[in-house]
Computed example of a mutant assay.
Amino acid sequence: MKKITIAVAALMLSFNALADAEKGQSYYLKYMKPLFGYNGDVLAQQHLQVEWKSYFRKDAKKFIKKYSQKHPEAAEFLNSETFQKIAPHLQDFVMKYAADSGELPDCNS
């Protein structure tokens, strides 16, 4: 039983390790900036890291709900499979540059 628990924990960590803030920034620029109309640093600075964690829990349902209401033109994309595939990277990006992170992205975000 202990071996199974360790294996599951290692697998979960490996999935998280696959997410990438730089990819998230690129995906934001490609897919979301045209819909949202502002740079990724503006998005990231809207919340603290703990808030971003809650927005991306459970398939990012809270993020989708809030930002679909805030940007109705983005609702279709936010409810797409593509968004679900890039969401872990977007989460890493906004977490890295969240209001309380102390980091600022480059000016092209």
Score class of each variant (00 low, 15 high):
Phe83Gln: 00
Ile6Arg: 10
Gln91Ala: 14
Ala74Gln: 06
Asn108Phe: 04
Lys85Gln: 12
Ala10Tyr: 08
Gly102Pro: 15
Lys70Asn: 04
Thr5Asn: 13
Ile64Leu: 03
Ser26Pro: 01
Thr5Pro: 00
Glu73Ser: 12
Ile64Met: 07
Asp100Ile: 12
Lys58Val: 02
Glu73Gly: 06
Lys3Tyr: 09
Asn16His: 08
Gly102Gln: 15
Cys107Val: 13
Ser80Glu: 09
Lys53Met: 13
Pro72Met: 15
Phe63Leu: 01
Asp20Gly: 07
Phe63Tyr: 07
Met32Lys: 06
Asp106Pro: 05
Phe56Cys: 06
Met12Ser: 07
Tyr55Cys: 00
Gln91Ile: 02
Ala7Glu: 03
Pro34Cys: 06
Gln25Met: 06
Leu13Ala: 13
Leu90Asn: 03
Asn16Phe: 15
Leu18Tyr: 10
Val8His: 05
His71Phe: 15
Glu103Arg: 13
Tyr67Asp: 02
Pro72Asn: 11
Pro72Cys: 11
Leu11Ile: 15
Ala60Gln: 02
Pro72Trp: 11
Lys85Gly: 02
Glu103Cys: 07
Tyr28Met: 11
Leu104Gln: 11
Lys62Arg: 12
Phe93Thr: 01
Ile64His: 02
Leu11Val: 15
Lys33Phe: 05
Tyr27Asn: 10
Lys58Ala: 05
Gly37Pro: 04
Ala17Asp: 10
Glu76Trp: 03
Pro72Ile: 05
Pro88Gly: 12
Leu78Glu: 04
Ser80Ala: 11
Ala17Arg: 11
Lys96Ser: 13
Tyr28Thr: 11
Phe36Thr: 13
Tyr28Gly: 03
Ser109Pro: 07
Lys23Leu: 09
Phe77Ile: 09
Val8Gly: 10
Asp59Cys: 00
Asn108Thr: 13
Glu103Phe: 08
Ala75Tyr: 10
Leu104Pro: 01
Leu104Cys: 00
Ala19Gly: 09
Ala60Ser: 13
Glu81Pro: 01
Pro88Asp: 14
Asp106Tyr: 07
Leu78Ser: 03
Pro88Glu: 06
Ala7Cys: 03
Leu13Met: 14
Ala99Met: 07
Ser68Leu: 09
Thr82Pro: 04
Ala60Phe: 03
Leu35Val: 08
Lys65Pro: 00
Ala99Trp: 04
Asn79Thr: 07
Ser54Thr: 07
Asn16Thr: 04
Val94Glu: 01
Ser14Thr: 15
Ala74Thr: 07
Ser68Pro: 10
Tyr38His: 14
Leu104Arg: 13
Ser80Met: 00
Ile6Met: 05
Glu81Tyr: 02
Ala19Cys: 10
Phe36Leu: 13
Leu11Ala: 15
Asp92His: 03
Ser14Ala: 15
Ser26Val: 12
Ile86Met: 12
His71Trp: 11
Asn79Lys: 10
Thr5Met: 04
Glu103Ser: 12
Gln84Asn: 03
Leu90Gly: 03
Lys30Trp: 09
Glu76Thr: 09
Glu73Trp: 05
Cys107Arg: 10
Lys58Arg: 06
Lys66Met: 09
Lys2Met: 08
Ala17Gln: 08
Glu76Arg: 09
Tyr28Gln: 03
Ser14Met: 15
Leu48Met: 04
